[in-house]
Nucleic acid binder design. Sequence first.
DNA 1: TTACTTATTTGTAATGATTACAATTATAAC
DNA 2: GTTATAATTGTAATCATTACAAATAAGTAA
Lengths: 145, 145
Amino acid sequence: MNERTVSTEELKNLLLASGVKPSVQRLNVLRYVIEEMNHPSVDKIYQNLLPQIPTLSKTTVYNTLKQLTEKGVINALNIDGHEIKYDFIEHAHAHFICTSCNQIYDIELDSDIYQMQSIEGHQVFNTQVNFKGICNNCKQKQKEN
Amino acid sequence: MNERTVSTEELKNLLLASGVKPSVQRLNVLRYVIEEMNHPSVDKIYQNLLPQIPTLSKTTVYNTLKQLTEKGVINALNIDGHEIKYDFIEHAHAHFICTSCNQIYDIELDSDIYQMQSIEGHQVFNTQVNFKGICNNCKQKQKEN
DNA sequence: TTACTTATTTGTAATGATTACAATTATAAC
DNA sequence: GTTATAATTGTAATCATTACAAATAAGTAA
């Protein structure tokens, strides 16, 4: 569906700039999160990298994602209370989650809440907006029946 | 900290109005979520109701919360990817989560995103805004050291 | 009431994501 | 090359959540 490519050089710079030492594992985890734009889960990342890195451990995937989240490179989306999905932080955007098909849609939201550095005295590092409902696709299918 | 009281009559009406048959268990679960305004977890609800309802099962708490969430009476907050917290839906408000002390603060947010009934063609039932960062309290403590 | 049906609750076992941790391997410094 | 340090791996443990069947309660008709 959605696709894009990032050069290894770019990935390296991204990691270095955020204070994470590049390694084959880290480069590939980050690459997958960026290129596979559909908010992959830990397991999806792990399964997809396994052919390229047969010795890969799921713990490494967890560790890397945790690090990248703390450094503010990626976003951890706690959407269904089941498993966490990851999202590259490129520009602020919201998410729409369909409660019928569980698809996650990126939503371009032009709101000033993304500019807020502090709120009610608290210092803000990260802002997430999640809409839930029935997506266009599922609504169409419902009508057909 | 925060407190309030709701009469059993009010609770009954709330349940009936949303199509949930009242029972001792359901009344008390809802009462606790409303009165204990600090976003309780399943376990906290369970532990606190146990003295009053010694036969209570955690499964019942799960079932009730699931039902109430589906009926739109309460909100399920997937905040830390660890356990789900619950919140009575009174009026739209955002949440601030301190990554240092894990405290959840209610934030009164005057934004028009709460009015959106649909977005990019998708039908919206529920809107959640989560800010993450360092809360005022923790920032003060940091300064003291 | 009694017999019967349906809904609710309960308890236990299973699932599955995440974490802890020690052992192994790779990288960097000297 | 040897040593120290960091990263990775694999296994076992943890813990929230769910599945499911048995037990209980509530509702209904005779």
